[in-house]
């Protein structure tokens, strides 16, 4: 069992994992955590006229747990993701349409090595790990579907343990021992778009957690001060040296562009 502070393994993201949806992505949290497949249909007709927004895009988020039916917890996460996406998606580009995001939880983290066994994702468990993966998966899905966005956002989960240590991306066992859990989402230019906390903590701890989450999302790779990254193709090392969530998203996008670069060239002229 490793009790290191940093994530031992970076999250994984693959774009376009489904065939029928307009855009899709599979996101796996660090250390084989919560895995979510996102399917994005955009732009589609709004099913109910009352939901139609005359000057913007209606965003519908659907989160489906891997077993059982979605309940209060899922509805809450859906609402949070919808509100976060509203701030990044350029909805006025496609008025009177719908951005439909379906998130399917495919696997949750479980640890049976301890007596009693611990499993994430149950109705009584925290929703913050699902929220983190779900938000990252929806952003990836939106990227794949060609949704126009102001900026790309990424989320990270930070736990504060009893002895005051900050753990980025805590595992299911570590989460049980944390006094508080925090989710922060940042856009690529470093602005905070989502904050969710659970448990008891001081304002100082919370601020520290935000810093840890910021570096987990933005990474520490060579960035210009506006958040842009020079993509010259030379920095292709995959070693984990401050590889943040946004770097993972960027790498997934790179892989996708390389994979069907030829087709895109043909269809874009």
């Amino acid at each position: 069992m490793s009790n290191t502070m940093a994530m031992t393994e970076s999250p994984k993201a693959i774009l376009h994992t489904l065939v029928n949806a307009d855009g899709s992505a599979t996101y796996t949290a660090a250390n084989n955590g919560c895995q979510i497949i996102a399917g994005v249909n955009y732009p589609v007709e709004v099913p109910y006229r009352s939901d139609e927004i005359p000057e913007s895009t209606f965003i519908q988020v659907n989160l489906r747990p891997h077993n059982g039916v979605g309940m209060v917890k899922e509805r809450h996460v859906e609402e949070l993701i919808m509100r976060t996406l509203q701030t990044v998606v350029l909805g006025d580009e496609t008025p009177r349409t719908m951005l439909q995001i379906t998130l399917q939880v495919v696997s949750v983290e479980s640890d049976e090595s301890l007596p009693g066994g611990v499993k994430g994702g149950g109705q009584g468990e925290t929703y913050l790990d699902v929220l983190t993966s779900a938000l990252n998966a929806s952003i990836l899905g939106c990227l794949d579907a060609g949704v126009q966005m102001k900026a790309v956002a990424g989320a990270a989960l930070v736990g504060i343990s009893q002895d005051g240590r900050l753990i980025a991306g805590p595992s299911v066992v570590q989460r049980k021992k944390c006094t508080s859990l925090h989710v922060f989402a940042f856009t690529s230019d470093g602005k905070t778009v989502l904050m969710e906390s659970e448990g008891k903590c001081s304002v100082g701890d919370w601020k520290q957690a935000q810093q840890v989450a910021r570096s987990a999302v933005l990474g520490t790779v060579n960035k210009q001060h506006n958040g842009d990254v020079a993509m010259n193709g030379t920095n292709t090392s995959s070693e984990y040296s401050g590889l943040g969530v946004l770097d993972v998203i960027r790498k997934a996008l790179e892989a996708r562009v390389i994979k069907d670069g030829g087709q895109r060239h043909e269809s874009q002229d």
């Binding site: 489904l18 029928n20 949806a21 899709s24 379906t102």
Partner: peptide
Amino acid sequence: VTELSPIASPAYEV
């Protein structure tokens, strides 16, 4: 439990 969601095809409604 089978429920078809829009992830499979936009024709399926929630």
